[in-house]
C-alpha cells in the first residue's frame, strides 16, 4: 500500500516537473522575483551594513516565503485554467497521492529558489555564510516543508475562490506563524555563530509542526477536492 502511494505520488510530481520543464512559467518567475526581492531590500534599508546584518535572518526568510508563495499560487491555478481539475480527480487511488505529489513539486520549486537566494544573499550583503550552509540548509528545509504543506492545501482551496490571489497569503501567513518564527530564530542563532545544538528547541518545533501538518493536510485535502 505504501509502495503504491509512493508510485502515484511520484507520477504526480513527475507530471508537474515535466510541465514546468517545458513551459518554465513558474520557476523562471520565482527565480527572477527572488533576485528582485533581494535587490529591493537594499533600497528599503539603506547602505548601513550593521542594520542589514541585524535584520538579515528576517529578510532572508521574507525572500523565501514571498517566493514560495508565488509558486504555491500557481500550483493549482494552472490546473484550473486548463480545466484539468476533473481529470485530476479521476486519478485512481487515494487523494493523498495527489496531495503528496503536488507538495513534493512545491517543495522542489521552493528549494530550488532558496538554493539561488541563499548564496546570492551572502554575496550581495557580504555575509560570511559559507561554512554555515549545511545547518542553514537544514533549517530552510524544515521550514519549507511545513510552509508548503499548509500552502499546498490552501492553494487547492483558494483556487476555487473569488479574489484567490489575495486570499492565499491572507490565510497562509497567520497559520504558518510558528514555522516563520521558528525558522527566523533558528537562522538568526546560526548566523550569530551558534551551532545546531543551540537551536535544538526551534528545530524540534519545526519538526513537530511538519509532522502534524504532513499528517493532517493530506486527510483534509480529501474534503477540499470533493466535487
Amino acid at each position: 500500500m505504501v509502495a503504491e502511494l509512493l508510485r502515484r505520488t511520484w507520477a504526480m510530481t513527475w507530471k508537474d516537473v515535466t510541465v514546468e520543464l517545458r513551459a518554465r512559467e513558474r520557476i523562471n518567475a520565482m527565480l527572477f522575483f527572488a533576485a528582485l526581492v533581494l535587490f529591493i531590500f537594499n533600497f528599503a534599508l539603506g547602505p548601513d551594513r550593521e542594520t542589514l546584518r541585524e535584520v538579515a535572518p528576517g529578510l532572508l526568510w521574507l525572500a523565501f516565503l514571498f517566493t514560495g508563495m508565488l509558486g504555491l499560487g500557481r500550483s493549482f491555478q494552472a490546473e484550473r485554467e486548463n480545466e484539468c481539475f476533473e481529470e485530476l480527480l479521476l486519478t485512481p487511488g487515494d487523494r493523498e497521492s495527489i496531495f503528496f505529489g503536488k507538495l513534493a513539486g512545491n517543495i522542489l520549486f521552493m528549494v530550488t529558489a532558496e538554493a539561488l537566494i541563499l548564496p546570492l544573499f551572502g554575496i550581495l550583503y557580504n555575509l560570511d555564510i559559507w561554512g554555515l550552509l549545511p545547518s542553514l540548509a537544514l533549517v530552510a528545509f524544515l521550514g519549507t516543508v511545513g510552509f508548503s504543506a499548509i500552502g499546498t492545501l490552501l492553494a487547492a482551496m483558494t483556487a476555487h475562490l473569488r479574489a484567490r490571489e489575495v486570499m492565499l497569503p491572507l490565510l497562509l501567513f497567520p497559520l504558518t506563524v510558528p514555522v516563520i518564527l521558528g525558522s527566523v530564530r533558528a537562522t538568526e542563532a546560526i548566523l550569530a555563530g551558534g551551532g545546531l545544538s543551540e537551536v535544538s528547541h526551534w528545530l524540534k518545533l519545526l519538526g513537530g509542526f511538519d509532522v502534524i501538518f504532513l499528517v493532517v493536510c493530506p486527510l483534509a485535502f480529501e474534503f477540499v477536492l470533493e466535487e
Binding site: 535544538s200 528547541h201 524540534k204 518545533l205 513537530g208 502534524i212 499528517v215 493532517v216 486527510l219
Partner: peptide, 24 residues
C-alpha cells in the same frame, strides 16, 4: 483507522513538543 492513526500522531507530536518545551 486512518483518522484514528492521524489523531494519535498529532496528539503524540503535540505532547512531545510540550513536554520538551517545558524543559527548555
Amino acid at each position: 483507522l486512518k483518522y484514528l492513526l492521524a489523531g494519535g500522531i498529532v496528539v503524540a507530536a503535540l505532547a512531545g513538543m510540550i513536554y520538551s518545551g517545558v524543559q527548555e
